[in-house]
Design a protein around this nucleic acid. Sequence first.
DNA 1: TTATTAATGGAGCGCATGCTCTATTTATGA
DNA 2: TCATAAATAGAGCATGCGCTCCATTAATAA
Lengths: 198, 198
Amino acid sequence: MRTVDPEKHALKRANIVAAAAAEFAANGVDGTSTAAICRRACIGSGTLFHYFPTKRDIFHAVFSDDFERSAAIYEEAVTAVRAEAGLELLVDHLVVSLADPLAPGLMAAAVLQAYRDEEFGRLLAGDEARLRAALTSLLERMAADGRRLAFGPDRTARWIQRLFDASFLATGDRDYDPSAQATELRKTVDWLTGRQGS
Amino acid sequence: MRTVDPEKHALKRANIVAAAAAEFAANGVDGTSTAAICRRACIGSGTLFHYFPTKRDIFHAVFSDDFERSAAIYEEAVTAVRAEAGLELLVDHLVVSLADPLAPGLMAAAVLQAYRDEEFGRLLAGDEARLRAALTSLLERMAADGRRLAFGPDRTARWIQRLFDASFLATGDRDYDPSAQATELRKTVDWLTGRQGS
DNA sequence: TTATTAATGGAGCGCATGCTCTATTTATGA
DNA sequence: TCATAAATAGAGCATGCGCTCCATTAATAA
């Protein structure tokens, strides 16, 4: 008998997911061939389909792995003692993820895939809903504490999300300036959340 | 002898471009087959390739047709007598284009294509640069007139662009509310441009 | 060691793709 | 009317695709 080593399996799987993410970000779902993923991951097609049943499932894995990590952070943020601290945690998380050079390509690929792949659409909508719920919950507490939000808590939450979506796209620009972007992003969020001195 | 009727030719061409735009928005460049474009445009493949040499050229045409129209509006805006009126013209143009249901899909397809197709990247960057130049020029005049912009004119222009980019993506959302979106968008732009009473 | 099975590479299958080519129809100037 | 070329449809070609299948190797329980 031989049993499967879960640690080795997870490691190899993660390696494939990383290679696939790079390809998907550069070429989209339909523009990426399974052969290209194999080449980048230095494996044969037999190995690839030993770990994943279809190309679509690899794409799903790229995102659901990330969403799992994010969900934990959302959870941590809403349970913060001070609502401001929770919001800062979320903003920090988003600013950090802006540093990922694959972000704009993956985002574009995701938008297109969401139209055609209902299951992926739900996956994506789930992460968005969780983030929005966390933001809304924190903003409601802040509003109750006297903060004057630019819009209602839910709408303000949407705008914060959209601001980051836009920033993800901007990271693809030729002359993208990460530090200026982060500073301005925080200032805009401060305005949206009615912070003093903005 | 028989000559080409430029009007009929342009009409037929526009019909193909419209059909292609719908397909590209739903499935991206690589996910769209030339056969699908033919089906939607109700033509044979012979006709398609009589009007365009390659699929890539059709995609380029979808955007360059639109960019040409936009460029005329940018031109009109910068030559406005009052800078505020020029800015309003630009914002109106952008708000109107938000109503296009193909916008988010086309935008996602464009982001992906820009990575792999240098010529298309230049096309896209050209439109962005023209819009930013128009916005910056107007914002500089407004700043000279005493408006207190949130950031420098060029950076503020970038943020306005990004706000709209993000809104384009949001139009794909299930519960997208166009009027609320437009109102909030204008309020945010007002804040960015230091307008009183925001 | 040995039996068992996970892990792996790669040949190759069936199918869809972008595009070409040819035949036919249609519209126009003379 | 007639000659000419634009416009069109669609069969078909070469290529690349996702994925299967099978042979081989590597690792582990007994």
